[in-house]
Design a binder for these strands. Sequence first.
RNA 1: CGCGGGAUGGAGCAGUUGGUAGCUCGUCGGGCUCAUAACCCGAAGGUUGCCGGUUCAAGUCCGGCUCCCGCAACCA
Length: 650
Amino acid sequence: MPNKPSYYITTPIYYPSDNLHIGHAYTTVAADCIARYKRMQGYRVFYLTGTDEHGQKIEKSAGANKQAPIDYVNKIVDNIKALWVTMHISNDDFIRTTEARHEEVVKKVFNKIFEKGDIYISEYEGWYCTPCETFFTKRQLHEGKCPDCGREVELLKEESYFFNMAKYAPRLLEHIDKNPDFIQPESRRNEILNFIKGGLEDLCVSRTTFSWGIPVPFNEKHVIYVWFDALINYLSAIGYGSDEEKFEFWPADVHLMAKDIIRFHAIIWPTMLMALDLPLPKKVCAHGWIMLEDGKMSKSKGNVVDPVILTNKYGVDAVRYFLLKELSFGQDGNYSEDMLVSRINSDLANDLGNLISRTVAMIERYFQGLVPSLGTILDIDKELEKVAGIAYDEAALFLEKLDFANYLNAVQRLVARANKYIDENEPWRLAKDEQENSRLGTVLYYLVASIKTAVILLSPAMPTLIERTNEQLAVFASIKDIKWEDAFPWGSDISGVKVKKAQALFPRIDNSAQETQEKMDQQAEKKEKQAKKAEQQTSEEENSYISMEDFAKVDLRVARVISCEKMEKADKLLILKVDVGGEERTVVSGIAKHYEPENLVGKKVVLVANLKPAKLRGTLSQGMILAASDENELEVLTIQSGLDAGTRIK
RNA sequence: CGCGGGAUGGAGCAGUUGGUAGCUCGUCGGGCUCAUAACCCGAAGGUUGCCGGUUCAAGUCCGGCUCCCGCAACCA
């Protein structure tokens, strides 16, 4: 076996505090497309993804669910793995930072850098909020108070380990300077350069305020900082320090990610590698975000797009195609279901799907379902072949640059040219003339050849396309191990291949049908959610009840709004003064988006009177006003009758 | 002056080292009938957010301004 060149590509390891959304799917699909392409090119590919499972956030979420962190995380990781299966992600490994193989390497790395002297123990100085058990930097504070609870903070010193990152800054700068492709796209590169030039500080790489993490090997009081832990996955997955043969994949060819975590990958990670005396990854590439019509996707907005639902509805190939085609890779891009539908209809249904459909239909009708043989080749045929060759070259060129939109565009031009070729040759006219039979055969042969090329070139983006095409147009003797160079030049004889018309490859999505479909899906979704909720409730039944005593702890009162004004420099907050039966209270409420201040004055609202006071952007809020809300609407509970302010509610 | 991104025909976007604007969708007109009401041809439509500068020449470089958006902070 000849020594095949290796190719190592990674996605970030995702944080399993919740199920993943379409943005994660985007990164993973993009990396998958490259991985598949490189395999077709004959590379020995290692495609890695996984999960980053430590940290305070996970510990807290798990605690809130009354679960051990590992149990909490296991469930979500299962969902993530299932998602990658439905999206046909071809990862070669899936690493979890809670696995022993990873923990060992992290400890080894920590030790090694420590022994080298680049990790040292010192004192971390910061403002500590005791109730919140959290350190803050001076910048994070709000008017000198805790940004979380508004209480006083104290300047505390805590023993911590630091990584001597600043030491490597000059070397890193030089490396970025000499390797223009190291950080991509260029706008990110400039951002990173500026950031480093602004000065790097040593990085605090251990924590003592929580325990869900990998302990510092020689000091169990400390837990290793999550990012330090997480980044090492790129080494631990390929057997750093244990499997020399596998470790030959290092250095990674590409670390792919969304733009928000570029700093970790372009600054912290390279300096860690320098400390380990390992070569740096060849490329660190950040793509943009997927924006929705109403802004960035977020859980609190309730507008998260679930890739599972989309894939079930439109098919893996279509969804993957859309993601790669519609978004300009380095830039943020928009998403809406309408955009997805129109992309599928125009590119996949009208052009590609229909091209295959009309070709197959003609072969069935004119040649009894067998691809005819070649006759005399005319200039117009050669031109089509030339276009196929261009598509072949350009597709590879753009894929190398991670320019997915232009890659797919290049193939689309071949598909369009083939459709035009049909019109130019008018096979239906040729079919009426015995004499033209050979010519007709040539035209159809060329169409099949073009389709074969297009389908191969598209297969990294659309992993089930070859198989599905082959059901109608059996041009692939085996659908396994198709090579990139099988696409072009046109060599292998395809005449005599059987053809069988079947269901449309990419059915057109008709709007009215789609709407009804959507409604049905939404209903199904709702039912599913309800079922899930019910299930959860039964499983957590014992924990989910509170006693009457517990409820009585909540002191609910009728409160009359005396005055109300918007808080300055805060778009969501209103400051209300309320009368609670003789006592006046100030309450800050996040309802500014839904209520004009003057409309609330005089209203009687429901106040949680014994809630722990908290400072919000500097103003002390003594209580909470009850309101019902979903993503769109919010209504404050009011008392209509003549009941007095201060009346107890129970 | 917290950090960053953007402003290009109706919509969504491209525009490499500066040389009188491209793509997809949509619209309008025509053609064809093999096909998934698809396909093919043609047309209309932009003073490239505003102002100034550099230059023989700027969407592309420089300075200023306006407006959007994301992050951060605030939903007790």
